[in-house]
Design a binder for these strands. Sequence first.
DNA 1: GGCTCGGTTTGACTTTTGTCGAGAGCCGTG
DNA 2: CACGGCTCTCGACAAAAGTCAAACCGAGCC
Lengths: 319, 319
Amino acid sequence: MTIRPAEQLIHKAAWLYYAHGLRQDQVASQLNISRASVAMYLRKARETGIVNISTSTQLFTDDVLARQLEDALKLDAVWIAPENDYVLDPSTDIAVLAASVFLELVKKGDRIGVAWGRTVYTIADVMSYADLQDVTVVQLCGNLGAPYSYRPDQCTMEIARRLNAKGLNFYAPLVLTTELLAHGLRAEPVIREQLADIANCDLALYSVGTVDADSHVVKCGALSPGEMALLRVAGAAGVVAGQIIDATGKALDCSYNRRVISASLSSLRQIDKRLMVVQEDSKFEPLLAALAGGLCTHLVVGASMARRLLDHAGAQKAS
Amino acid sequence: MTIRPAEQLIHKAAWLYYAHGLRQDQVASQLNISRASVAMYLRKARETGIVNISTSTQLFTDDVLARQLEDALKLDAVWIAPENDYVLDPSTDIAVLAASVFLELVKKGDRIGVAWGRTVYTIADVMSYADLQDVTVVQLCGNLGAPYSYRPDQCTMEIARRLNAKGLNFYAPLVLTTELLAHGLRAEPVIREQLADIANCDLALYSVGTVDADSHVVKCGALSPGEMALLRVAGAAGVVAGQIIDATGKALDCSYNRRVISASLSSLRQIDKRLMVVQEDSKFEPLLAALAGGLCTHLVVGASMARRLLDHAGAQKAS
DNA sequence: GGCTCGGTTTGACTTTTGTCGAGAGCCGTG
DNA sequence: CACGGCTCTCGACAAAAGTCAAACCGAGCC
């Protein structure tokens, strides 16, 4: 990919402005263009990740609460988004933090697994642009047929786009009608290879879903509210990467799970850094299940959720 | 290290401004302080590396010339600072580029070896601040007794300070009067350990020195002009990390080298990424020697030097 | 040639940001 | 407790950056 002359100009402008610290009018006269153009180039440079502005997320790990949680839950790192402190839009607050944390965790040459859901999509949406050419973003689970606004492949592609990375989708439905068909499809070389490669990821990004009628998998039509109610009785506690898990974090032994095309929980656990982001307080039990199953090494949550987790861990210990 | 309240404010302001994209007045009202204070906090945030603004150095590797040099010299990466193109202060131009390249090469948890010289000091001087807590910067060679403006330990400490990293100095003179004393000092546990650990670095930063009367080691009083002239006759071609090398890049067999306390060339070669930065065109021969000795995997030079190197490599091949 | 269409570029204007000196609070000290 | 010295904060102004409609430019097409 050779650089087009316009792109060259963006690079030069960005370099003079950000690295050398010139003012925009000085850059303009250096490059013999108007200052207005310089301003435009600089915006493009920021948007395409030619310049990177990142803020340390230390503030959120330095919290005592975060440290306590790390200890109590034996996690590698925890970030806590303060609530009603200086919140703008409370729902995106956690997503903005998660996006920063995510960018901080990504390294050159990494392979990143991305699941799907409203949370993940919101993160993708607020993520700033970066220039990580040799990064690969892979999709962790099959697609939903429904014309839903945030499909797995969209999450993957959007994140890949923002990072200037390679996106690797796989086009299989998330859930099939028969176990036989699912089995057959998983054996397909294209699918099999992609699934097998997931364990080689360096970083995974996902959230956890609830198991009620509001659940993502229900809204997408993968399960009917009635089926979900039955699964709940059978011990379903949460949804991770499209799969139903029980309270201990194991995949629930049920027909649905056997019909799903997605990264297996064991392959997810092989990924070094598993970043789990939880926005809604209603996801407390699902999150506990995911934690019990060791599906999370790095956690981003809101303050109230953090307190509940810590209380719970304390109670566990006491009993 | 607990965060002081003021520091907390800097973090919050930086977060709201850079991550959430609020305007300064909005941040000010969120935090109940004046906008002027916000502006000040933001400056501090940039200065201390709480926010990181980095520009891609792609522009300088994408050059055809850079690619050709990589091939011709079998280097991992080459950056070329354009000359008389849009130069501000030609001498710092290369240093600014080198500083950016350096920051791009540093990774979390790295151990970095730093040599000394005017070039290295200039780089340290223009380097922007970053927040790399778990990085260690170690000094590659002994100190000069002379009250020279850029001493090895100063280079090390300044870079460590800018990176918020740990700096590891060792206080031995660069050169001693007798071989016996040098031998004894090298055997001192404190010194021996530090020298032995140099091979475990992930990244080294140094330049190369000339072997004339203007040379750094002469100006610092480590060698007299006369001694230097003699060494030159004996085959001296350059100076790397305080040691004299011959045209093939090997340490010259001379009393001076045996009296030096510094990282051995062989331990330098064990470092994965060896970033060499050369500012002056007069360092052509010394650079050739360093390249011949495999002391460089990543190179930052000016355009005219790059052309000379390429011409030389072409001529070599033809003959 | 004259035309439209998509895009870049520009000057003029508005908004946002940087800066500086004055003043307020806060020690430790005589 | 009054005094300098210190840091932190603010208001007001100056400087810089962002924005937008209008002009421009080249390519493709009648």
